[in-house]
């Protein structure tokens, strides 16, 4: 991905689909944490590590994470 798009990335969490397994927080620890009940919570306003977040999104067993660019 081209660097200059970095700050336009956002992550959408489909909380309806998410089952709170917490895999995403392991794969993208810089951007995704877990709340008191084990559900993902975004840690930063801007994505720090797009590669981690993309990997977390494609690894999510419930397909609950979408990485979006602001043009989406």
């Amino acid at each position: 991905m081209v660097e200059c798009h970095m700050d336009e990335l956002t992550v959408d969490i489909n909380m309806i689909a998410c089952s709170g397994v917490g895999l995403c927080a392991h794969l993208a620890p810089e951007d995704i944490g877990l709340d008191a009940w084990g559900f993902p919570i975004l840690l930063n306003g801007k994505i720090h590590s797009p590669d981690q977040v993309r990997r977390a999104a494609s690894s999510c067993p419930r397909r609950a994470l979408s990485v979006l660019t602001s043009s989406d």
């Binding site: 909380m15 709340d35 009940w37």
Partner: peptide, 9 residues
């Protein structure tokens, strides 16, 4: 009953 933060929070 679908979303963790709502169900537990």
């Amino acid at each position: 009953g679908q979303c963790g933060p709502c169900v537990f929070g």
